Computed example of a mutant assay.
Amino acid sequence: MDLNAKIYVAGHRGMVGSAICRKLKEAGYNNLITRTSSELDLRSQEAVNTFFETEKPDYVFLAAAKVGGIHANNTYRAEFIYDNLMMEANVIHASYMHGVKKLLFLGSSCIYPKMAPQPLKEEYLLTGALEQTNDPYAVAKIAGIKMCESYRDQYGCDFISVMPTNLYGYNDNYDLENSHVLPALIRKFHEAKENGSPEVTVWGTGSPRREFLFADDLADACLFLMDTYSERELINIGTGEDITIKELALLIKEVVGFEGELVFDTSKPDGTPRKLMDVSKLHKQGFRHKTELGEGIKLAYEDFKVKYAAPVTTA
């Protein structure tokens, strides 16, 4: 990408979009276009078309999505499939209509079958049943991948799809009802420490294995792939390393400094038994993550304390 190129980052206020914007600015890209959801409703085809006609971006990072953890995915099933389908369909189609040079679409590791062999290879897409608790979200993301493939097939568009593993980092969502496991545990352990609670409850058995990638490493990978990758097939972005939820909880407990006990609520769902990405394709392209999990959790916790846990001051 030319340093003066006009780059639209959809979803710039989210964890992923904000990381992409930071990395673009660090790399010298200053002609960034952003819109909040109140300024531009990506679910509106008319609004999206007007925006693209007016702004005429050269490149698009499609990081806008309705996201959440197991509870949110399973509770707001209709919203998750509708909002995500509409946003990606409108942005991808407008990118084709208005001559965008290249688009990068961000999917999710939940697109892979629940019982797919581990680690998850890109070719496992659509080879089995999805995890039931988040299949509306997964189906929407699969549709986005297929849109990018189809627009490449029919119109020759340089649209690529990347599949990040579980993410965490700056500007994460710490709402206990709707967040993912890692930020939820950071908040739980912090509040338990502050309140002097004797224990913290973790959903499920603690046995599922998960892979976690620092969002700034994902952003680095996205910029790298925007410059180097132009294939039809999707590409995984992850670390290639996983950890049990129990091990994750113990790691966060140590970082936060909580000295109480862990309790596992086995009445709550575990979700997919294991989700580990095969990142050999990414490594062959020449990219590897930089931030190890312990270091990343420390960075995320410092961000949480500044933005979400700062004491309320009165005048």
Rank of each mutant, 00 (worst) to 15 (best):
D2Y: 09
D2L: 09
K6V: 03
Y8E: 00
R13E: 05
G14R: 01
C21D: 11
C21V: 13
T36D: 10
D41H: 15
S44A: 11
E46Y: 08
A47T: 02
K56V: 06
Y59V: 13
Y59T: 13
Y59D: 09
F61G: 05
F61W: 12
L62H: 14
L62P: 07
A64M: 10
K66A: 03
G68P: 07
N73R: 07
N74S: 15
I81A: 09
M87H: 01
A89F: 02
I92S: 05
S95I: 07
H98L: 01
H98I: 02
K102F: 02
G107P: 07
Q118T: 09
Q118Y: 13
L120T: 10
E123R: 15
A129H: 15
Q132D: 09
N134I: 04
D135H: 15
Y137N: 13
V139Q: 14
K141W: 00
K141G: 07
M147C: 08
R152A: 05
D153Q: 07
D153K: 10
Y155L: 09
G156T: 06
G156L: 03
G156V: 08
V162Q: 02
T165I: 08
G169F: 04
Y170S: 15
D172S: 14
D175I: 14
D175Y: 09
H180E: 11
I186A: 01
I186L: 01
F189G: 00
V200W: 00
T201S: 04
W203Q: 14
T205Q: 04
P208I: 07
A221T: 01
L225G: 01
D227N: 11
D227W: 09
S230Q: 12
E231T: 06
E233V: 06
I235H: 03
I235R: 07
I237L: 06
T239C: 06
D242I: 11
E247W: 14
A249Q: 04
L250T: 08
V255D: 08
V255I: 10
V255Y: 00
G257S: 05
E259Y: 07
G260H: 01
L262A: 01
D265G: 12
D270H: 10
T272N: 10
P273I: 08
K275F: 05
D278N: 15
V279K: 01
V279P: 11
S280N: 11
L282C: 03
H283E: 06
Q285R: 14
R288M: 11
K290Q: 06
K290M: 01
T291I: 01
E292A: 02
L293W: 03
E295M: 09
E295P: 04
L299T: 11
E302M: 08
D303Y: 02
V306N: 09
P311S: 13
